[in-house]
Design a protein around this nucleic acid. Structure first.
Lengths: 235, 235
DNA sequence: GTCATTTTATGCTTTCAAACATAAAATTAA
DNA sequence: TTAATTTTATGTTTGAAAGCATAAAATGAC
């Protein structure tokens, strides 16, 4: 398949992944190197599905990925946005559960997987590394709890403003210092902000009319960061 | 103070806490024993506040505790209900952050604290233990994400039904096999289910009229578990 | 026991966001 | 290219839950 003929430089990918693990011993590095595989995913392709069993630690080396859960009424809820270089699906791996969300590539992406047993073997003998991971999972639990409160208590405008700020902080801005460096559909934006697509479109138009943002298709320019933050804070 | 003259058997409390750590080495056990302190909290008292700095691993040995965050409009959101024997506030400890929620005793409670540095020192030398903790924090992150989806997407009846089931599963039932073994105010029930107190009261009355539950002050008897679960699942 | 405060209960009104209905614009496929 | 599909846009209607008002009941303080 053409997607596999796309040439991935596994060595540089591996180096990138290792950068996320400080103080890895040479033998641990070697184990990882021998148990890593790479895969290419095109925009829109599913990396794994909610309910699948994890077979290793998945690392996003290139591209952007959304993680979403199917909601009660079939409406999806985006629970995380991943950027390179970073891990996805680790929660399920560490909890020894199946994936609780689906991972879908938002752009053409490169993903590599460190085989489960090899990786867990390293953890079992490296308390410092495990403690580092514990720290980031604990941090993420904080984000998640916070998100529960804001998504349930803020009004539509506050939720959307928060999402835009979140996207800006996660993916950064283009060279113009204004355009958010990720191009989501209005539907994705809605699923991230817990609202219907119609309301995302409407509210976005509202922000544009007020001069807080500027819209150009999927490009969103933040014109007034301060005001956007105020909208987010007020709820 | 009379609350402190209340006699706590620290040895048995310590044994209880140790039961949560399987395979603790004798020297680790000794460190813990030398760095543990106990405290008694009466119903309604605050164990720690959102924003406080953790000084150790807090363990609830006796009683019941609610953990809540202050929401945007001043409305509280209960993010966790703790029961003995179990830990509270560990997320902040492991994330090296301040507490992200307030812990308040729902009944007279006994709490003990293992000093931070002593405990973290044990973790740094015990990968297996750290991995166990990582597993539970990862599991909890799953719960939290799930909760975000249900709290935002389910309707009032579904959310309240889910909370009742959650309370039943967390605290169990009285000997009659029906009464939920925790007695919350309508306001707490509302803050747990993301709704106003009025709506908690109204919806609860509705369930009682339909014969799904029976109310007697704060006592809630579940008459039809199956139907309650159906209400929760339908959203 | 009495008084004050908090909690519970219920009715009525308002409001925010969802649902629905089109239609224009932009992609994608043929 | 044209046709088909998806995405975006906007107006209108509907409905669920919040807000407000009031009162009864329960709890706690004195």
């Amino acid at each position: 398949m053409s997607r596999n003929s796309y040439n991935i430089d596994i060595e540089s990918v591996f180096e990138g992944v290792c950068g996320l693990f400080p103080n890895l011993k040479p033998e641990e590095r070697e184990i990882m190197r021998n148990n890593i595989t790479c895969q290419y995913f095109r925009k829109g392709e599913i990396i794994y599905k909610e309910g699948d069993t994890p077979h290793g630690l998945v690392c996003l080396s290139k591209g952007k990925v959304k993680l979403y859960k199917e909601g009660v009424g079939g409406r999806d809820q985006i629970v995380r946005m991943a950027k390179p270089i970073g891990f996805i699906g680790y929660r399920a791996l560490f909890a020894e559960e199946n994936y609780s969300a689906t991972a879908e590539a938002l752009e053409d992406s490169v993903v590599c997987i460190i085989e489960k047993n090899a990786f867990m073997g390293i953890l079992r003998n490296n308390a410092e590394l495990t403690l580092n991971i514990l720290k980031s999972v604990a941090t993420e639990l904080g984000f998640s709890t916070n998100r529960t409160v804001t998504l349930t208590q803020k009004h539509i405008r506050g939720r959307l403003a928060e999402s835009l700020i979140f996207l800006r902080d996660t993916y950064g801005l283009e060279d113009d210092g204004k355009t958010i460096k990720v191009y989501l559909s209005r539907e994705d934006l809605a699923n991230l902000s817990n609202m219907t697509t119609s309301n995302a479109i409407r509210t976005l138009s509202g922000f544009a009319e007020e001069g807080v943002i500027e819209l150009d298709g999927r490009r969103i320019k933040i014109l007034d960061h301060h005001r956007l933050e105020r909208i987010s804070d007020l709820g």
